[in-house]
Write a protein that binds this DNA or RNA. Structure first.
Lengths: 110, 110
DNA sequence: CGTGTAAGGAATTCTGACACG
DNA sequence: CGTGTAAGGAATTCTGACACG
């Protein structure tokens, strides 16, 4: 129980201060699916520190003239690549274990 | 730049949900110096995850019939003890280093 | 497309005070 | 001492829309 980074607890005004973005911008990026805050009972948005970091990255990319759609695509690609990498690592791990098994059986003192 | 635990960003309503305490209780514990939230420009309180954890501990102690004054004293004592421990560790460290120096000088191959 | 802004309303928070046990 | 509550007010946030480039 310590993923503070992911806990959605920060109100939009504070996120605005933390990121330097206007609340208008932050709401718009949500509309474009770039961030997904939760809502309180009273319908007020709550963000996580992870969201704040994501927003800072978005801000940088926007400054570089990137469009929200491009940012979204880029992020999806990155996620996909990360998953492929993870898969590779898992496979290598299994391969390595099989090797160990093999050599163990070859050894004289069993 | 990663002390999320210490960043004061959570509004009192959310702290209330997180801790199970009423806002009245949370404000009262501030009055008794048990928590020290920051304020936004608009004078609204902002708490850190560290504050939330502290409040949960306070809640437990209150349930055990402890008074705010006692909780405050207990905490101060703990802080003092921790400082003493830290000092001891530093001293031991220095002592150890001196020992190393000594033995090094004793060695034949210098 | 991305962002500002005025509009009307709802939800949140603030303080100081009175009440109770 | 610790907490609830009603009171009045201020600050925050929300949505949908129009404007601009």
């Amino acid at each position: 129980m310590v993923p503070y980074m992911k806990r959605k607890v920060i109100p939009i005004g504070t996120v605005s201060e933390l990121t330097g973005l206007t609340v208008r911008q932050i709401r718009y990026y949500e509309e474009r699916k770039l961030v997904t805050p939760e809502r309180t009972t009273g319908n007020t948005r709550k963000y996580s520190f992870e969201d704040v970091e994501a927003l800072v990255e978005i801000a940088n990319k926007m400054e570089d003239g990137m469009q929200t759609t491009e940012i979204l695509k880029m992020r999806k690609k990155e996620t996909r690549e990360r998953e492929v990498d993870q898969k590779k690592i898992r496979e290598e791990l299994i391969k390595g274990q099989l090797n160990v098994q093999f050599h163990r059986n070859q050894l004289p003192f069993k």
